[in-house]
Amino acid sequence: MNKYKKILLGIVLIGLAFMAVFAYTVYDTFFTSNTNFTEGTYEVLIPTGADYNTAFLAMADAVEDRDELHKTAQRKGYIKNVKAGRFIIEPGMSNNDIINAVRSRNIPLNVRFNNQERIEDLAGRIASQIEPDSLTLLEVMQDKTFLEENGFTKENALTMYLPNQYEFYWNSSPEAFRKRMLASWKSFWNESRLAKAKELGLTPQQVTSLAAIVHKETAKNDERPTVAGVYINRLKSGIKLDADPTVIYSKKLEDSDFNQVIKRVLYKDLTIDNKFNTYKYTGVPPGPIVTPDLKAIDAVLNYKKHDYYYFVADIDNFGYHDFSKTLSEHNRKADRYRRWISSQNVNR
């Protein structure tokens, strides 16, 4: 009898030892740290439609033991349940933590943009921050049916995209991005702003296009309402805006080169036959020459009422402008400015 008890006890002890080894192995595989970095975080981007191999490679460089990570993925059924998105691996994470993170913790990011001169530029800027490529984004952003249904044209489509910081999932679709931007545009154009635009006799798109000129003319927020007032005065009087930034934009369009830097507008540039050129055509351009910031839009809506019709860069107060009520007064100040800029050897 004692013999059988000893055998049974031995079997139990072996079983317990095996269970202990198994438990340790499982614990070591699942719950001990497997990251190969101690500071910061590791961003894992898993594309839409990715298979397990693609997902595994996206996170593999962050771990010490790839085999153990793979075993954990198998045991937790992740191999057949890959999710697209942006995931974060933190220092000290175990295999279990990592697989849980990439399976269910899609982390949004902040998408930012400003100073985009064309919708093509905006598409490229957005594509550098979220998954869709620029061509796909551009196709959706320029969709004719969408634009017509929401009161936009191909030329003023850029007005819908208000520079700001927006939270998106990295794997957001182009349609989701566009939908969010339209909602933000509608939210910005509340009853108060719409009423002010109507009082000016302008649509929100025209206000934004005019604000783009103001934005380009001056970076000084305290001066923008005054600059806006000049353009409003000229519009009300039926005078061409004669805005140099629109000439620069027209020159870039004519040359098909938006990378060129133009510091000085030449007389010959004023004759460029393009609807964006306000030296050639009366009224607000058919679209914006840049994505104006929100303060520039509000500067137009809340323009300063005055009798100025002209302005030129103030060489005594850099960054600001010298305003005039009459053309003769303006010409004297403009001549002074031209002599100064010529002395600086700025030819283009």
Rank of each mutant, 00 (worst) to 15 (best):
I88D: 03
K268P: 03
D273P: 10
H321I: 04
R86P: 05
K144W: 03
Y309G: 02
K263D: 02
G151W: 09
N221C: 00
R193H: 14
T145R: 09
N156H: 07
L253D: 08
I341H: 08
G124Y: 06
N331R: 07
S250T: 08
V26F: 10
N150C: 11
Y78C: 04
D28E: 10
I213F: 13
H330M: 03
S94C: 10
Y309I: 03
A228P: 10
D28Y: 12
D316A: 09
A176T: 09
K305I: 14
N331V: 04
R103Q: 07
S256R: 08
K295A: 14
G229Q: 13
P47D: 03
D28F: 08
M19N: 12
F18M: 12
I213E: 13
Y78E: 07
Y231M: 08
K3Y: 12
N277D: 11
L162Q: 11
M181L: 02
E175R: 04
S172F: 01
N100Y: 02
K186I: 00
K154F: 08
R105Y: 09
S342C: 00
R224N: 08
I107C: 00
T32P: 01
S172I: 13
H215C: 05
Q165P: 00
V284S: 12
D51E: 06
F146T: 12
Q142V: 03
G124M: 06
A73K: 04
A20G: 15
Q74V: 12
E117V: 02
A243I: 08
S173T: 15
Y27D: 08
Y161F: 15
F37R: 01
F323R: 09
L137Y: 06
N274Q: 04
V207P: 07
E199D: 13
L147F: 11
A20S: 13
N96Y: 14
D222Y: 14
E149D: 15
